[in-house]
Amino acid sequence: MITHIFVAVAVLTISAIVFGIILGYAADKFKVEGNPIIDQVEALLPQTQCGQCGYPGCRPYAEAIANGDKVNKCPPGGTATMEKLAELMGVDPEPLDQVAQEAVKKVAYIREDECIGCTKCIQACPVDAILGAGKLMHTVIAKDCTGCDLCVEPCPVDCIDMLPVETTLKNWDWKLNAIPVTLVSESLEER
């Protein structure tokens, strides 16, 4: 009878040691550096680095979301991003904080003849998308502009406009096909 107890204890002890070693090895071998959820959240954010969420960039907001902040603070991402974030974080979707403006992508445009070359917008641009030097005209590298708005406010002469991105054959959306097809007979008569 007593040997049974010893055997049981011995078996449990040995298996505990074996599993302990396996787990310890696995914990070391498959260790995850950092919090992977932050990277996942960041991948969903639009990377405009606009700071409208109240954090200095998209990465800090991703960290905040991972730590339980609300998912509805990203106006550039719009409702689609908010829903994805909610799904990822397992929380209920909430309407966006700010009134989500018409989700039209915009880029900054500097009216170059009015620019005095103060470099203030260059310092404000989070993605270094403005080119120029002191007392020389500046210009926006349109393809790198995220449309974050941050350069508009510092401009002392208000020469920066946010213009909607022009629709070209490349970024044209089939949804726009709602344009009625011109009736040829009418159009030929017109000309």
């Binding site: 990377q47 993605v127 089939w174 949804k175």
Partner: peptide
Amino acid sequence: YRIAKSALRVEAEEKVLAEQAKLRFEAR
């Protein structure tokens, strides 16, 4: 399908742009 394809294409392009913006932001 055309609508969905163009939406996916736009999404993919935006993803690339976002990646670039992130790199530029980090570089800055």
